[in-house]
């Protein structure tokens, strides 16, 4: 069984957070872990009942979800939060309290979310029927340093979930499933938001030796 960690999904309404989160939840559970999912829409019906959509209320909602994740993680449960969590500061506040925190940015564009409009909300937001709608009339601050960034456009939710699971395996959060048969190589991998290559690929072995030599000559190593 893995140790507890928090998998925090952020992204616009309709980006695919819940859909992808549920697939990841299933996989983590199948690997023998305790897992709990806190979905933003569901949480608003009990834990955060009565809260509105002002910045303050949105932040309170996130901090409440964050607190539950913290408690779950501490007790070796994998906590999955799927909430828009539009403000970077609130997400960072949650991150600061949870040592094993993995932020997943579901980077579906506003245009694509509005095109999909699964819940019919964008139409209402654009017509002004819903005020304070994230991405339309309220800000969304994308993460500056999410551990995982998922591009969903042109890909199935299963593929996106697979990317997240691969990342969790590669970083020791999740024990890989025993392989029954050789699996095809993943089509695409999640990339950091920054477009910088991941740290493991910054240098080849040869390049690392070359740069290390340079640092040694300078007395830095």
């Amino acid at each position: 069984m893995s140790r507890g960690f928090t998998l925090w999904f952020t992204g616009l309404s309709g980006a695919g957070k819940t859909t992808i989160g549920e697939i990841v939840e299933q996989t983590i559970r199948e690997r023998g872990n305790k897992v709990e999912m806190l979905d933003g829409d569901v949480v608003r019906t009990h834990l955060s009942k009565g809260l509105g959509f002002s910045r303050e209320d949105r932040d309170t909602n996130i901090l409440r979800i964050g607190w539950v994740c913290e408690v779950l993680t501490r007790n070796d449960v994998v906590a999955i939060a799927t909430a828009i969590s539009p403000y970077r500061q609130a997400r960072e506040q949650v991150r600061a309290n949870i040592p094993a925190f993995v932020e997943v940015y579901i980077a579906t564009s506003l245009e694509e979310c509005a095109r999909r409009d699964v819940k019919g909300l964008y139409k209402k937001a654009i017509s002004g029927e819903i005020p304070s709608f994230t991405g339309v009339s309220d800000p969304y601050e994308p993460p500056a340093s999410a551990e995982i960034v998922v591009q969903t456009e042109g890909r199935t939710p299963e593929e996106s979930a697979g990317d997240i699971v691969s990342w969790l395996e590669a970083h020791g959060y999740l024990t890989p499933a025993p392989k029954a048969a050789p699996e095809p190589a993943p089509v695409a991998v999640a990339v950091p938001v920054s477009s910088a290559p991941s740290s493991s690929s910054a240098y080849s072995e040869e390049e690392e030796a070359e740069v290390s030599k340079r640092l040694e000559d300078l007395g830095y190593m």
Binding site: S145, A196, E208, M221
Partner: peptide
């Protein structure tokens, strides 16, 4: 530092822009 150890390991690596976790001003 110019060199660091990966947390939970004794592996040594060279920190670089991809291990930097806050955005530099130019980004």
């Amino acid at each position: 530092g110019f060199v660091d150890r990966r947390l939970n390991t004794y592996d040594v690596f060279l920190p670089n822009s991809s291990t930097m976790k806050r955005e530099p001003i130019w980004c």
